[in-house]
């Protein structure tokens, strides 16, 4: 067995430096790599390009990197709910590339799967398609979208093992599986790291081949962005 385990976030993030491009799993604050983000704040690397569906909130998730002005460019599909983000974007400090959510997911998956580009109907006829190659298939128009190229992918899973195999929970799965293996180095953090053999191979969502380093996260806040409930009468 090839062991992927490292001791902690500090070891897992060896090699990150200024001006790199990173992928971050998560949707809103659900399933985000909290420990990797905390370590990036500690390291203070800057001029980063970050590919993430959302940009966190003011004081959590990628919002922590925005607060420290570590991000130069953000590639996302939806960036509401973050005042500091909006301020940096409108003042021109932060470059933002808005991408349709399905296209963003597929640009990751294409990178993971060795596909350089693909045609999608999303964004045809809009400013998203400006300057891009378009083509007709069976009477419908499509836009050519290239795969992402990233230095590190930071993903978060529920359970993992020493071999780097991952299992996700609920909708915290989201972008994490499509980013695993989509960058030069994939770092997975898990809530529970188990010995090889402890996870049923039938239940693995992402095989360890896509993961370079795996560690157990120290503490997960798992903040809820919109707490909606039914009240018992």
């Amino acid at each position: 067995m090839i062991v992927k385990t490292v001791a902690n976030a500090r070891e897992a993030l060896k090699g990150v430096s200024d001006s790199m491009t990173f992928m971050f799993g998560g949707f809103g604050l659900s399933g985000i790599p909290e420990n990797a983000i905390a370590e990036l704040v500690r390291l203070g690397v800057k001029d980063l390009t970050c590919i993430s569906n959302n940009a966190g909130v003011d004081d959590f998730g990628l919002g922590l990197l925005l607060q420290q002005r570590q991000i130069r460019k953000m590639i996302s599909s939806y960036v509401g709910e973050n005042d500091e983000f909006e301020r940096q974007m409108l003042s021109g400090e932060l470059e933002v590339e808005l991408t349709p959510q399905g296209t963003l997911a597929e640009k990751c998956r294409a990178a993971q799967a060795g596909i350089p580009a693909f045609y999608t109907p999303a964004g045809y006829g809009t400013e998203v398609a400006a300057g891009k190659e378009t083509r007709e298939y069976n009477g419908k128009m499509y836009v050519l979208e290239p795969a992402y190229e990233a230095d590190f992918a930071f993903v978060k899973a529920w359970k993992g093992d020493e071999a780097g195999n991952l299992i996700f929970k609920g909708s915290a799965r989201n972008f994490n599986p499509v980013m695993a293996g989509a960058a030069k180095v994939t770092v997975a953090e898990v809530e529970e790291l188990l010995p090889a053999g402890a996870l049923d191979p039938n239940q693995i969502h992402i095989p360890g081949i896509f993961v370079k380093r795996i560690f157990q996260g120290e503490l997960y806040e798992k903040r809820i962005e919109q707490r909606t409930v039914r009240t018992r009468s």
Binding site: F27, G102, S171, P177, E225, T228
Partner: peptide, 24 residues
């Protein structure tokens, strides 16, 4: 459950027969 939300980031539940999957 912070791990079970909808696209509006609201906490939700699932019904019998539900499934979870990745963004792609």
């Amino acid at each position: 459950d912070p791990d079970i939300i909808n696209a509006g980031k609201q906490t939700i539940t699932t019904l019998p027969g539900a499934s979870f999957f990745d963004s792609s």
